[in-house]
């Protein structure tokens, strides 16, 4: 065992088989208890310079000091628990927004409500050998977004800053 904890406790009638990842900067020098993201078993670990100096030792019934950020189950198609699932993983607070997508954000309007080409697919508009002109004919290429924009103008939602 090292800086992953592969939990093999019996859980709901079969081995838990969950890997709890102890991320390097947080746990490089660390002592305390941590729970398994799947079965909730609590382990005591003492890591010095990335090595398990003591543990993982079972600490049944104790309240864990912390949780992993990430855990997955290789035997079940890598089903995983990402950051911030209550009682399983610890939250990742330092994020750019209150939500976290991890996939492309389909944006049609900038924060001042003017059209920006941030969504897919886009209607083809190229000429010879992939050439493009120097304008974006929104009305012709994306009439629905054009309409939405006209509505925004009417509603006074389009601002300077």
């Amino acid at each position: 065992m090292c800086d992953i904890i592969w939990c093999k406790k019996d859980f709901e009638g079969k081995p838990c088989n969950t890997i709890n990842y102890l991320d390097p900067y947080c746990f490089w020098n660390w002592e305390g208890t941590i729970n398994c993201a799947e079965c909730g078993a609590v382990y005591y670990i003492h890591m010095i310079q990335g090595k398990m100096y003591r543990g993982p030792e079972d600490r049944p019934g104790e309240k864990p000091d912390t949780s992993p950020l990430y855990a997955d189950k290789p035997l079940e198609g890598y089903r995983f628990y990402g950051a911030g699932i209550p009682d399983r993983t610890r939250p990742f607070e330092c994020l750019p927004r209150h939500i976290y997508l991890g996939v492309p954000d389909m944006v049609k309007f900038s924060i001042r409500n003017r059209p920006v080409r941030g969504w897919r697919p886009q209607a083809p508009d190229g000429g010879i050998a992939g050439s493009y002109q120097f304008n974006w004919d929104l009305k012709r290429l994306s009439p629905d977004v054009y309409e939405e924009y006209q509505q925004k103008i009417k509603n006074g939602e389009v601002t300077e800053w």
Partner: peptide, 20 residues
């Protein structure tokens, strides 16, 4: 390359309409 895979502008070019 986009921060946390979230922020793209489209299109890359016509033959790849789903890539930004």
């Amino acid at each position: 390359c986009a921060p946390f895979n979230e922020t793209y502008l489209y299109p890359l070019h016509d033959s790849r309409p789903m890539t930004g």
